[in-house]
Design a protein around this nucleic acid. Structure first.
Lengths: 341, 341
DNA sequence: TAAAGTTATTAAACCGGTTTAAAGAATCGG
DNA sequence: CCGATTCTTTAAACCGGTTTAATAACTTTA
């Protein structure tokens, strides 16, 4: 700890021949302190290479200068979903602008999801919270809201007071399904995410509505519930082939699962898009790298991160938030996996 | 801020009829406090739902309970490299175990790389630092080391006192190149990363050495320096074709660039692996998803994150670190892009 | 020139814990 | 039964800043 051992405000004060209070005021640019004194203090600060200790400042102001991103999942899960990386990109960009720090809170294991919440709620290491969408049964969500922390929730939440940034999951799924129908597909499989998650439910609903609007009968045996992972998509594909279910298209609940399906189809000789059309959801980078390139519903993940962070910053700065519930739009990106053959 | 407005240690003390000191000692499990008193205090704590304010604790102990991961790049850059996600996964896993938090420090823009350092060095918001490998000309690296912060550097660094976790870049590149030579390839292009980065240099050296050991003449016009991005790989591929350089294999400095090359080759009708074999470096998830699947040098990125975090924890807990420089090994993973034709 | 008004500076309180040193109470040994 | 030990408890200092309220110094004004 060489030079920066610990130059405190008292050291500066002593050397400058003033009181600590004056140093503090001078640094804060308070109008009360005399011009000459101010310059002298600033010179001394420079000479001693003094920088105020953040902790001391925090102690007094009770503002931490950091926000927490709570994801009730393991690090393993989080980082295997490219989705989160883009969210983080958006958030950190905004936070950098405000000189705020980001704390990432995940759970050590599947079983202990409460830990991710406790770390933040109990220790008060953050001024506000961005909450990743979680199971609709997750009782911790309510705890967060009731804790009084400023919160922004990523996803749709029924409670009208909670600030949220939502995707148009329903609309996106509707578009995707309708696209497949327009291609002449009639037996469209939907591989859904876990149905205790609102986004999975909404996507399923969008799919159903599109079928219904086009007078195609919804068949529950064409819906397979999986967990959003690539491996799960692979399994689902395998299952479809093994059970010889009749289908001519797959709408997967996200890209990772779609890519898993793509892989098993390639291995088993199912031709995409000739035999089966595939559409995913998210538009992660991988979607444009696989072959055939994946048709998918693009959602502006980085923008979601940006909006969430900006909304939270607004609250923390005492500004009135114009839009309690923001909604970002999705867009169908047509690529090879559903090209007209 | 409903219930948890602010119940302090003094509130607990008052209600329990003891002094704040006793409460603090009781909570700390100090042997001095009488069993009965301890129980009584703990009950009161429970009754009031008291949890100690972290900031107060930090103030006294001068230990923050967080470490910083400094990446002198923009968030944009960081999150577009899957590489970092896996590093983060490893780190957060360890930190969770120690109840430490992770602070991510990136730069707001390319030009202001010092910002990523300043945020941590000046504000002392972390107890230690993990430093992502940076340009060998980055003068800030020295600042960090001289600051007295405990530091772990990711990559190879000449200074013998600095704790590091290194990959075997040289060895990995050697293996990759040799593999191509064994396939009978003689004109092997190397698309390198920025050559002011140690890892890019080391990979280039590994490539050269393998050529040399197999009596293949190194030709500098078969080396193209790019920036590790997928777009750059694409460009490099385009350049190779446009300039009609003669080559029968490509060893790319990382997977993203290899995937970029793959893409342009596919578009231009160059057959992989028949006409040209391709090998990448990193083994990111995308490598096993593209078609043909990419042969690459696997490096245990998560493990690097784990090692770095553990090393830092050891230092912070005052333990002697056995291995100042740890090295993880790489492994060649052979897939379709270099299959024997 | 004294009173009132300005301007500049600072002592002291405060944020919420932890820790030290000292005091007070209980127990022990001779 | 008294001095020495041991066990508990607590007052007070401390961490490093910010802020308030009071003081001091300097100008004006009457």
């Amino acid at each position: 700890m060489k030079e920066n051992r610990k130059v405190t405000i008292r050291d500066v004060a002593k050397l400058a021949g003033v009181s600590p209070a004056t140093v503090s005021l001078a640094l804060g640019g308070d109008a009360r302190v005399n011009e000459k004194t101010r310059i002298h203090v600033l010179e001394t600060v420079e000479k001693l290479q003094y920088t105020p200790n953040e902790i001391g400042r925090i102690m007094r102001s009770q503002k931490i200068g950091a926000i927490a991103f709570i994801i009730p999942n393991t690090s393993q899960h989080v980082f295997s979903h490219p989705y989160f990386a883009q969210l983080l990109e958006g958030m950190t960009e905004v936070l950098n602008r405000y000189s705020y720090n980001l704390l990432l809170s995940t759970t050590p294991s599947e079983a202990e999801e409460a830990v991710a919440y406790d770390k933040i709620l109990r220790n008060r290491r953050a001024d506000g919270i961005i909450l990743s969408s979680a199971s609709i049964n997750d009782r911790n969500l309510l705890r967060v809201v009731e804790s009084g922390f400023p919160v922004v929730y990523l996803g749709r939440w029924l409670h009208p007071d909670v600030l949220t940034v939502e995707r148009d999951d329903f609309g996106g799924a509707y578009q995707a399904t309708e696209h497949l129908i327009r291609l002449g597909r009639k037996r469209i499989v939907h591989i859904s995410g876990p149905l205790d998650h609102q986004e999975a439910l909404d996507r399923l609903e969008g799919y159903k509505k599109a079928l219904n609007d086009n007078e195609i009968l919804f068949k529950s045996n064409l819906v397979i519930e999986k967990d959003f992972s690539r491996a799960a998509g692979y399994e689902a594909g395998l299952q479809l082939l093994r059970e010889k279910r009749e289908f001519d298209a797959v709408f997967a609940g996200n890209d990772l699962m779609a890519i898993g399906v793509l892989k098993v189809f390639k291995e088993q000789g199912v031709k995409v898009p000739q035999d089966v059309s595939i559409v995913g959801f998210d538009d992660i980078e991988m979607a444009s790298v696989v072959s055939p390139m994946l048709t998918t519903v693009h959602q502006p993940m980085k923008q979601i991160g940006v909006l969430a962070a900006e909304k939270l910053m607004a609250v923390l700065n005492g500004q009135e938030v114009a839009e309690v519930q923001s909604k970002v739009t999705t867009e169908l990106v047509i690529r090879e996996s559903s090209e007209i053959n």
